[in-house]
Structures are given as C-alpha cells and as structure tokens.
Amino acid sequence: MSQNGHVETGTARVKRGLAEMLKGGVIMDVVTPDQAEIAQEAGAVAVMALERVPADIRAQGGVARMSDPSLIKAIMGAVSIPVMAKCRIGHFVEAQILEALGIDYIDESEVLTPADEENHVDKWQFKIPFVCGARNLGEALRRISEGAAMIRTKGEAGTGDVVEAVRHMRSVSQGIRRLQGLRGDELASAAKELGASLELVREVAATGKLPVVNFSAGGIATPADAALMMQLGCDGNFVGSGIFKSGDPLRRAKAIVQATTYFDKPEILAEVSEGLGEPMVGISSRSLRPEELLAGRGI
C-alpha cells in the first residue's frame, strides 16, 4: 500500500488555508530587514515587504511598482514568519517574479500604480495565493472569482485615517446581510447587480460570510483602530504606514497586535493604548482630491 499517495500543492484550500492561519493577527508593512525583525519581535503574523510605505508613495508621487527582488529576498532572509509582497493591479509578470522568489502571499494592490485598467491578474494560474482589496461585496466577489484567496478592505492607504476602511468593511457586511434576506429566486438579479457570479452569490447567501478570510487595511494607525475593525467583523488587520511612521514603532506594533487579540476587552485596550508616543501624523481622507484617492483603482 503506498503511503500518502495523494499530495497536491497550490490548491484553493492551501491558498485560503494560509490566510485562515493569519486570522486574529496583524500583517505589517516593512521597508528594511531591520523593520521586519522589529515586526516579528512585536508579534506580527506576517510582513509585507515594500520599498516605500503608502504614506511615502503618496508624498513622493511617481509610478509605484513592485519592489526590487534584492530587498524582498533580504526581508525573506531576516524573518521566519510569512512574507508578502505587492504587484501592480493586472501586472501578471510582476506576480510571476514574486512567485519565482518564493514569496508566501502576493498583494495585487491599488497602492501601486495600476498596470491594467480593465483586467486583474488571473490568479488561478499561480500556486502562490493572492490577497486583493475591495470596497464592497461586488468587488470582493469579483476578486474571489479571479482567484483571490484572501480579501482586505482597501481603506485609504497611507492616510492614517480609518474612515474608509470602516466604510468598506460595513459595506461588505451589509451586502452579505442583504443577500441573506433575499429569496432564492431573487439571487440571480442580485448577482447581476453585484457584477458577481451567481454561484458565489448563492454560497454567500447560504453561509452568511465570504468564502475567504477578510482583513481590514488602509488607514489603521492605533490599537483602537485595530480593535474597531475587529469589532466590525474583520478577521485581522494590515497596518501599513501606521507603525513605522510613528514615534515608537516597536511599542506601537506590540500594542496593535495585543489590541487585535483582545479587541472586545476595553480594559485591556485602555492599558495597551497608554504612552505609545506620537502616532503617524496622517491626512484626513476628506482633504484628498479625487485623483489622489487610491481606493477607486481596480474595481
């Protein structure tokens, strides 16, 4: 009898499975191997390897692309937790390069300048899982149909303003609750309205949740922000500029990890929020011109 005859890599289950293991955790943007080690020391479940955090991409402008492979490799070498990296929306060659580097997760991200204004990457063609941003249920389901194994809110990256992440998380949840209230013969019309497949719409109506893990991202800067997103029903948090643009990154990173676990315990939240030093200064997303908003990219 052959032992363990059937072994299959790169399946939807193992792609979605890694995201399941990240639940209740914090994924932190880092731009150097030293920052990656600080994130790991603080208790991050994964790091996102980048050349510039979103706040700097915003400030410096220009075309934002995939990071230099040498930086990504240095960060992969510095820590033992999973490492993610971003490719531009629709830039399947950047995704192929990230896969060749052996990255653990690819973020097809609106934070970088889109490479294709019509099409996202066909994520089913890859053995490495993808996470994609979404502002509402329709976007989330379209990305899942394209093969995303994890969803996050888009929020408004690099602002330190949580308002857009809140809007997007509520919008996805409301979309799900609405589907649950519909009759079976009303789901086809709902699918058309959402621009999503009927099969996925039926699944969400029946289970009351997305078939993949749903994190929050885009503007989370404090332990209270992280706990707010958890109480709104997300599975975990991405924190970008919020940590390494603050006065005391290690301390703030630890506090955000702790707040994500004890999101519904106000006494613990009060304790971990004390004396964290200066938060990132931030920009109100209301003050941004429409062309400065990142969340409208890749819908």
Binding site: H6, V7, E8, G17, L18, D104, Y105, K127, P129
Partner: peptide
Amino acid sequence: RQRESAEVLLEIPAVGEEPVPVA
C-alpha cells in the same frame, strides 16, 4: 515556504482505514 504547502491524503491507522484528508 507556502509553495510547499499541500493537501495530503494521510494514512492514520489509529482513526481507521480510510485515508484522512488534511492540509
């Protein structure tokens, strides 16, 4: 790393003859 992650039909005689689907 993640690219080595796999679904496996694992033989675990202690829980029965049928292989166990695990990840």
